[in-house]
Design a protein around this nucleic acid. Structure first.
Lengths: 274, 274
DNA sequence: GCAAGTCTGTCGGTCGGGCGACAATAACTG
DNA sequence: CAGTTATTGTCGCCCGACCGACAGACTTGC
């Protein structure tokens, strides 16, 4: 059973293995200069990582393992939110399907990430769609069970709050980028974000074990496939990006130019007291 | 002490009283045809509304009342997240200040809304700014106290989760709009959203007790002030909006066109099984 | 291993909307 | 009430990016 989306005739091709050790790099991955190395894998602790062993064991009693073939849709906007999911392996894309048929990727879930909990309470129907980017395995937990677990496990509820907060902050940044920046800048910021969250140091560079098509990237930064292609090409031509042995390298000075995660917001704009 | 932002020389002028009874309409408010009336004030229950009396009382023991003059900045991106706030009266804007000095409004907090909790745990510094749109009163709770309260009060933690989830969904929709729609559409959707969240039935129409400048609106939908002005004017000219006695009226068929809150996502895009 | 399908790369045409500028009106403030 | 400041309304220029189209490279499945 393979799903096909209206906006493109094939399924989603990205199928990297992320955040776990194994990785199969077949075509492209993104690499960054050493200046970034210190910040690599600053990926926030996942939901499961917040729990201790006994809590985790208790939660997993409710769980059912579900195998997802590539491109399998887990749920779709409008579905009743009957389950919560935790990724064991693989990668799941959370996205909107706009009325125009456009895919708008919001974020990816990798190992240990939880998804589907946003609509738990007053959510009504699902607001977003979830689809496996690659062959994946997820744990499925019934909504009622999960709610009960959260009520009995304060730390878990706070963990969930933390995860959702993190995503909220992420989307805020995306909005800021969409409003403020042009495609080149959004693309640069995306590369940096991917480095920080999914980067893995390889020699003096950082490798991202994602295999995203230009269309995937376009869906993430709100651009068209063509623009992404040409912008990527232009960055390469300008020396900002270089493509060697099918791997992307980012020039050091550019990585420096990119805004750092925490301390960037303050300096540029100072409110004046009158 | 009045704050002025670099991007505009004056402060923020919006100063409506919202969601509580009192209202001072001086210039403009938005009104919608009766078709919407059934959905008015579908504003999700606020954080405080989730709590019972004893829980609320216990929380308020930690609280300190803080009066905010108009345009007072509560916190700014980069600040340490030492407090959580609950609005008692007035209105607080949560926004990003982009490197270019642009204001990007994410959402507003009105009576009983909580804000500043997104950075409670792994947030590091504040990611967003908060500023009183008008004279407001907020309750300030120290971070440690609030954390402790959440740990001891599972329902409160879930309430917080619910509130943050709601906002997450909201931002997802905003992103979808930014990617998919042009300014006219985004503006229409904004008006509808405002009707649903802040609308108050007046006669056969619905009144929004917000006083937003075109600039405010532009900051919310990612457009320029000029474009908002002309788009608003064009909608009026096309009969979609009419400005009578300084109040906006939305034609009924247009209100019908607008996507309804819950059941809109399904019909347009159906994934095909291959 | 060949054929079908997918992805990358490139090129004009077109246009929405940003930007600067300026006038007119409305809203505050002393 | 008068002067100042904020807000609305309008215009023209111009650029970034969308859109359609197509060729070549790569991947995948039979």
């Amino acid at each position: 059973m393979v799903f096909t989306l209206p906006s493109r005739q094939n399924g989603f091709p990205a199928r990297a293995i992320v955040a776990t050790g194994t990785l199969t790099v077949t075509t492209e991955d993104v690499t960054v200069a050493p200046v970034m190395a210190a910040h690599i894998n600053q990926r926030p602790p996942s939901f499961l990582a917040h729990l201790d062993d006994s809590e985790r064991a208790r939660l997993l009693e409710f769980a059912v393992i579900q195998e997802l073939p590539r491109n399998q849709v887990v749920f779709c906007a409008g579905d009743p939110p009957d389950y919560v999911y935790i990724v064991q392996s693989g990668r799941v894309r959370i996205y909107h399907l706009s009325p125009g048929g456009r895919v708008v990727s919001l974020w990816f879930c990798v190992a240990e990430d939880i998804f589907g909990l946003t609509e738990l309470y007053h959510g009504g129907h699902r607001q977003v769609c979830a689809q496996a980017c690659e062959r994946s395995r997820v744990l499925r937990i019934a909504r009622a069970d999960f709610c009960q677990f959260l009520e009995q496990t304060p730390r878990a509820a706070l963990a969930a709050l933390d995860v959702v907060s993190m995503r909220l902050r992420g989307l805020g940044r995306v909005i800021e980028g969409l409003v403020e920046s042009d495609v080149t800048e959004r693309l640069t910021q995306l590369i940096q974000r991917l480095c920080l969250e999914y980067g893995r140091p390889v020699g003096d560079r950082i490798c991202i074990d994602l295999r995203l098509t230009h269309q995937d990237i376009a869906d993430m930064i709100g651009a068209t496939r063509q623009t992404v292609t040409s912008t990527l090409g232009e960055l390469r031509r300008r020396g900002v990006l270089t493509l060697r042995e099918r791997r992307w390298h980012v020039a050091q000075e550019v990585a420096g130019t990119l805004t750092q995660p925490a301390a960037d917001s303050k300096p540029a704009n100072q409110a004046q007291i009158s």
